[in-house]
């Protein structure tokens, strides 16, 4: 498997590297030999059909689930081989948007965004309040500080989740199915937001999704997981894969099963 080709003139440093990763449930191996690199500033898409293990792959990358084998490297630190305290340090550089938003339902939006700040910074309550309002305003939720998650729509919850994920100005943002359950317009707005944030904050973004519109709109690099081959069968820029890949399954996936149109 070749490493994803960087865009022309974009030889940035490799910030995440996955080596020989294996995903399994008990004795059942779902994926093996996963090898890829993510460079600073990439919007990296992990794509594949339902149930192919892409969410699990993300959980292994963010330290929620120990992989059955292989390494996840951040810089030259192998996440699963260092002691817990070092893992915790790494985790603080991650911002994660879960599929359902995963806002803490007993707290208001402001409290949700404030918690990471309270835990890991020495900011005064007033400073935290200001930062929280700013982060919420970034995702278009200014004024919703005192709302509880249950009072929000699905799209708003996702955006609030994003505000929380960005609370600590993370180096890496992970998104699990960001457009799932959103109407097309909200999904598009979230995509735009991801691009803007990634560009302006120079954050590296990893997105797990099977939403084609999102894949083409935001992805600079991607890998395709094929559950039948039990490994990744394509890597590169999604548009490039669509145009050049010789793998029929990937092309069918990227064209909603229609295959490449003859030109």
């Amino acid at each position: 498997m070749s490493a994803p080709k960087p865009d022309s003139g974009n030889e940035r440093e490799i910030v995440i590297e996955v080596r020989n990763l294996e995903i399994s449930y008990g004795s059942f191996v779902l994926m093996r030999d996963l090898n890829f690199q993510i460079r600073r500033g990439d919007i990296f898409i992990i794509m594949g059909g339902s149930g192919c293990g892409k969410s699990t792959l993300m959980k292994q990358m963010i330290g929620l689930k120990r992989p059955a084998g292989g390494k996840v490297l951040y810089g030259d630190v192998s996440f699963w081989d260092v002691e817990p305290s070092r893992q915790e340090q790494l985790k603080r550089r991650f911002g994660i948007l879960f599929q359902s938003g995963a806002l803490w339902s007993s707290m208001t939006l402001a409290e949700n965004v404030a918690l990471p700040l309270e835990q890991y910074t020495d900011l005064t309550p007033a400073q935290i309040r200001e930062l929280v309002s700013f982060k919420l305003a970034l995702v278009g939720l200014g004024g919703f500080e005192d709302f509880y998650p249950s009072e929000l729509s699905g799209g708003m919850k996702k955006r609030a989740g994003l505000a929380r994920a960005m609370a600590l100005d993370p180096d890496f943002l992970f998104f699990d199915e960001p457009s799932a359950g959103l109407d097309p317009i909200s999904a598009r707005l979230l995509d735009d937001l991801i691009i803007e944030l990634s560009e302006s904050l120079d954050t590296t973004v990893v997105v797990v999704t099977h939403d084609l519109a999102s894949i083409f709109a935001i992805g600079t690099h991607s890998i395709f997981l094929d559950p039948e081959e039990k490994t990744m069968t394509a890597a590169g820029n999604p548009k490039q894969i669509l145009a050049e890949s010789g793998n029929e399954k990937v092309v069918r996936f990227l064209t909603r099963g229609e295959g490449r149109k003859p030109e």
Partner: peptide
Amino acid sequence: GMMQVNEEIDALESLGI
């Protein structure tokens, strides 16, 4: 249990809490 279903506990763990 409900927090587990909503991934709220994952969210805590991912923050190292």
